[in-house]
Nucleic acid binder design. Structure first.
Length: 484
DNA sequence: ATTGTCATTACTCAA
DNA sequence: TTGAGTCCATGACAAT
């Protein structure tokens, strides 16, 4: 069973597992944990509800561009020789004999999808989504009106709330738990508004789910499900200027714009490569930055509707793209090639923006994010480290040990910043949220709750409500912590 | 450089 | 309450 020769990596991982097991045994936590998971089942009230007729359509087998990893490239599966690689065993049992037919239906499916999809066609939930749309459009309107009284642009950005939070006050109440989508959540975002608390999530199946947390309606639980993509959703971009427009990117290379006014998922960009990450420069809402295939970073321009630039910045996939909030020309990327890089977009050559710094981890880097002040940078890596960087050129480095071995079923952890430079929040394998302090240079607290029945692996903080943190699991759940 | 293979392991749901 | 099934992503590394 045990490998004959252990690599350093394996050895370390085994040590982790062993140590964890010992800790568990010592604390007799195993039995307590199982008790907890039992008791929490009842607390599970809110959940997406799919209408039967729609469900059928969701489960229609769709041939995806699989095996994206090795290539980073996704040549059209229809023209790619045999279908062998594109089918798994379970699908084979259904479709082995008429794979030809399947490829034809797939062709039609893709042809249909190569264009706008109406929100009605993509909608999967039982109850009407009218209320969701109205709520969001109302928020937008208020924002637009208030904009008139302000100086354009930067002042609005400055409204982003910053502040310290007492970690001990952050609580997870049962009513702030919901199963928003089926399957694994890849990405989640709070809509940046004070008028409503709405979480948008994207899952592995290409579903986009909404949870209106404060929906106080008797016949609605505030959960709405759409299916605009056929593959994992890699990015969600929304901004406070137009809440009714939400960009979503997908592993199949499509980027769509959900437009609540037009009630459509418009197709804005298609790539022959997988899109693994997407971000927006906070002061340039006319562009999208996204990671394509093996290390390409591209910019899509809303005014031309085309990709305007494409640079090869990394060797392997770009996992995250982030901008320094205080100087949005400074961009940070993280990549499976083991590096996190900082770039200056004011200084762009043929090979892309000038590289200001390369941070080298021993393994893949899963995320790189700037602190709200821009003065810190946090990296999360598969080498079981969270890097904290500070100083004018981020020259001061602190590596904090953190078990980031999430395995196959849990999405990689990504340490995100809170509402100031104090803390980085990151999931842990014990169904908790570790809080890393920049001053303490270590995990100083862990958010835990008996109501957390799964591991929260992807997070977002509410831009305007200090202490409101959302975490998402591989089972489609969303937890929202709030200050008590 | 490209391809192959191997190990990882939590959650849900049905019985 | 248990255990079977999921899963086909991801990353590391060996082989070519």
């Amino acid at each position: 069973m045990a490998p004959q020769k252990l690599t350093e990596y394996e050895r370390r991982r085994l040590e982790n597992i062993k140590r964890n097991d010992q800790m568990l045994a010592a604390l007799n936590i195993r039995s307590k944990l199982s008790q907890l998971s039992q008791s929490t089942k009842r607390a599970q009230t809110k959940s997406y509800k799919v209408s039967p007729e729609k469900k059928q359509r969701t489960e229609t087998p769709i041939v995806l561009r699989r095996s994206l990893r090795a290539r980073g490239v996704a040549p059209d599966p229809l023209s790619a020789g045999g279908l062998k690689d594109d089918f798994d065993e379970t699908q084979n049992s259904i479709s082995k004999k008429n794979s030809k037919l399947d490829s034809e239906t797939t062709l039609m499916k893709r042809a249909y999808e190569k264009g706008p999809i109406s929100m009605r066609d993509a909608y999967r939930t039982d109850a009407s989504d009218r209320k969701l749309i109205e709520t969001i459009l109302d928020c937008s309107t208020e924002l637009r009106l208030s904009e008139g009284n302000e100086v354009l642009g930067s002042s609005k950005l400055g409204r982003k709330v910053r502040g310290s939070i007492d970690i001990a006050t952050m609580k997870l109440e049962p009513e702030n738990i919901a199963r928003v989508v089926p399957g694994r959540i890849m990405n989640l975002k709070f809509l940046p508004t004070t008028d409503a608390r709405i979480v948008v999530v994207g899952n592995k199946f290409g579903d986009v789910g909404f949870w209106n947390v404060n929906a106080e309606d008797e016949d609605e639980d505030g959960i709405y499900l759409y299916h605009p993509h056929p593959a994992p959703i890699s990015g969600i971009v929304c901004n406070s200027f137009s809440l009714s427009k939400i960009f979503t990117s997908c592993y199949d290379g499509f980027i769509r714009l959900m437009d609540m006014e037009k009630e459509r998922f418009d197709l804005v960009y298609t790539s022959d490569y997988a899109v693994f990450s997407m971000s927006q420069k906070p002061d340039d809402l006319n562009s999208l930055y996204f990671g394509e295939g093996n290390g390409e970073l591209s910019i899509w321009d809303a005014r031309t509707g085309k990709s305007s630039s494409s640079w090869s910045l990394h060797q392997y996939r770009i996992n995250t793209i982030d901008f320094n909030p205080q100087n949005t020309n400074i961009m940070a990327t993280s990549s499976t090639d083991g590096t996190a890089c900082i770039w200056d977009l004011r200084n762009v050559g043929v090979n892309g923006p000038a590289s200001l710094k390369t941070i080298r981890h021993e393994r893949a880097v899963h995320s790189t994010y700037f602190a709200p002040s821009g003065r810190f940078l946090a990296t999360t890596s598969a080498d079981d480290m969270v890097g904290l960087f500070s100083g004018d050129t981020y020259e001061n480095m602190t590596m904090v040990y953190h078990n980031n071995q999430t395995g196959r079923w849990i999405s990689s952890f990504r340490g995100i910043w809170g509402w100031d430079d104090s803390y980085v929040f990151i999931g842990n394998m014990r169904r908790g949220v570790d809080v890393i302090s920049t001053t303490g240079k270590d995990v100083v607290a862990t958010l835990q709750s008996e109501h957390m029945s799964a591991i929260p692996c992807r997070f977002d903080m509410h831009l305007y409500e200090v202490g409101m943190l959302a975490g998402a699991t591989s089972g489609g759940q969303v937890y929202i912590w709030k200050p008590s």
